[in-house]
């Protein structure tokens, strides 16, 4: 990647692989949610090559990656597209530049929080936390939740590891200090 120190993505493993991108569009053509993305995956690579880091920091693209790995196994330059999307999200989260109105970061946050507190994920609890920010979404899911409950598929009580504190500790031990603005 460019030697520019201002590149917030420079530490990403295998980032240099994007130098090889030929903008063929296989990744975007393979992507099930490409239509929801503001930039095609390959465009993110082009933007990074141009040094348009801000565009990438504020892009919603990584958040719509569903991890289906279709792009990654087809890329004719063997760029690990999916892995890069994860890495972009990590940088964006750290920098706090995820688009404000985007639902996915909130969902991820609720999910992560649930793990941190209990070590495990209980769907009803994740939805409850997510619903605090997006009440409409949560309400929409109520009919389905009722159906699920009727079939014994809805767990309201939190699943927990034996010592939830140990997972919280794991979170603390792996905390990366926030970059100074």
């Amino acid at each position: 990647m460019s030697q520019n120190d201002t590149n917030p993505f420079s530490a990403i493993a295998h980032l240099e692989s994007i130098k090889q991108c030929i903008q063929c569009g296989t990744c975007s053509g393979s992507c099930p949610l490409a239509d929801l993305m503001d930039h095609a995956p390959r465009e993110l690579f082009a933007l990074l090559r141009e040094g348009a880091f801000d565009e990438v920091l504020h892009s919603n693209t990584p958040w719509f990656c569903v991890s289906c790995y279709a792009c990654m196994v087809r890329c004719p330059r063997e760029i690990p597209v999916t892995d890069l999307m994860y890495a972009f999200k990590e940088v964006i989260t750290k920098q706090g530049t995820a688009p404000k109105n985007l639902k996915m970061p909130d969902m991820y946050q609720a999910f992560s929080h649930n793990i941190k507190e209990t070590g495990k994920v209980t769907e009803s609890q994740v939805m409850a936390r997510y619903g605090m920010k997006h009440p409409l979404d949560a309400l929409k899911n109520i009919p389905l939740a009722i159906k699920m409950q009727m079939r014994g598929r809805l767990e309201l009580k939190a699943q927990k590891v034996a010592d939830p504190k140990s997972i919280t500790r794991l979170f603390e031990l792996t905390e990366i200090p926030k970059d100074k603005p």
Partner: peptide, 29 residues
């Protein structure tokens, strides 16, 4: 655009029996 996939799954019943070529048209995104 390099073709991502060729499939016999059809979106439109009228295309039954045809193949669908899926690609990103990179010039129009």
């Amino acid at each position: 655009g390099r073709v991502a996939e060729i499939t016999d799954m059809v979106e439109d019943p009228g295309d039954e029996g045809r193949l669908t070529v899926i690609a990103e048209s990179t010039l129009t995104r």
